[in-house]
Design a protein around this nucleic acid. Structure first.
Lengths: 223, 223
DNA sequence: TAGACGGGTATTGTATCCAAACTTCTGACA
DNA sequence: TGTCAGAAGTTTGGATACAATACCCGTCTA
């Protein structure tokens, strides 16, 4: 059985995979037909997706797929950086912080980059993205501030903002590998700072860390 | 006619005013009867309220009113501080920043505190709360980072976190007036920092500013 | 030609019915 | 006495019918 939650999930997929295009009006019946459902479950899902930030209210009734400007993507990225910085600070200040999950992920990243020469670049970026997302998630979850996770989920729906998004398309291959290498070195520095309880440094480093991803939004890098 | 949005609003009121109590299961039919509607509009509203953070999913189906621990309230306050700090930074970095709305609000606060001796303390706190909320909103809106507003809305539903919440119940009357005075001086400093384009100072001051409100959560102040 | 008015249509809002699934209570059996 | 199975009741999920209204578009007027 479907349940409202899985209906919401399916519509979210439609949006994220671009089957519903940014700016496009979302009509209940149209979505219902596409999913083979009646309007009822759709009606329960749309307001939730609007609250989630994927749809915007248009006029007095009805929704449209939200369109994100480049500026909004950058804003969301900076906001993510600020929130994750706060998470790192919080984790560094906790007496009972457990660094083992982070160290495991660091090791995964080390191994990945060590063998990276033998990997196709797209494949490497995909694997790196996975590891990167795990790192960021681990810090947030270790911060013991659940609200940060909720707010970050909101940031991460914005295109190019999620830490799983790793793609620097207009750079040279060597440059792209170098960026990953540099970003992962920052991971090490962040863990060091957290390990030594240096909350301010951990926060500053994590905020800085997001800048790596700016180029995938501005796309303005020289080849 | 009601429309989903106003139904959501009415249920939100029920929650915020405590007619639906924290932890309490929210049954569709029960809410429908209270509002004099059928279950249909309720069913569209509940998932949205869950996304908003006021309800939590309980089990495989159904919702309950979210209960916020003291730690969660403090987390939300600190997160608000971080986000508003970012807003202040962003505003300070804008070349076209318009300080007039802030200056007007500063003046309102000055006037309020000047005549405060003649006011009942509850009344003063209510008026101060209004001015305070206006100040915070003005900075966020002038930051030109709409996502901050969205995330702050999420923080501000948490009890005691909204800048409109001004209540230091366990303090002496003199102390309470002194807190308002001090907080408003900080407003002046923040505007100064923004005016002079000192983004880092603006951010630091705004983050510090939230600490005033901590005591209304911990409630642990000596009289 | 621009703007206002009004009717028709498309789309959303609400109610009700039925189905599915979860909960709780009961009773039988180990 | 404890546990498990099953049935009854409660609650949510989905489909359909109908009502209300926002919006589009054509027409009329200034």
């Amino acid at each position: 059985m479907a349940s409202t939650r899985s209906t919401t999930l399916r519509i979210r997929e439609l949006i994220l995979q671009g089957e519903l295009k940014p700016g496009e009006r979302v009509k209940e019946q149209m979505v219902a037909e596409r999913l083979g459902l009646s309007r009822t479950p759709i009606r329960a899902a749309l307001p939730a997706l609007a609250k989630e930030g994927l749809l915007i209210v248009v006029g007095a009734r009805g929704y449209a797929v939200r369109r994100f400007s480049q500026a909004e993507c950058l804003d969301a990225l900076h906001t993510r950086a600020a929130l994750e910085g706060l998470a790192a600070r919080s984790m560094a200040m906790r007496a009972d912080r457990d660094l083992r999950p982070l160290r495991t992920i660091l090791q995964t990243g080390d191994d990945l980059l060590k063998t990276s020469a033998g990997l196709d670049l797209e494949e490497l970026e995909a694997l790196y993205g996975e590891m990167n997302a795990a790192f960021h998630t681990a810090v947030v979850s270790a911060s013991d501030m659940p609200i940060l996770g909720e707010l970050l989920d909101r940031c991460n729906i914005v295109p190019f903002v999620s830490p799983a998004h790793v793609a620097f398309e207009r750079r040279s291959e060597a440059e792209r590998r170098r960026i990953l290498d540099f970003a992962h070195r920052q991971h090490h520095s962040i863990v060091e700072a957290i390990a030594s309880g240096d909350a301010a440094r951990a926060e500053a480093l994590f905020r800085e860390h997001a800048h790596n991803q700016e180029v995938s939004i501005t796309g303005a890098g020289e080849p």
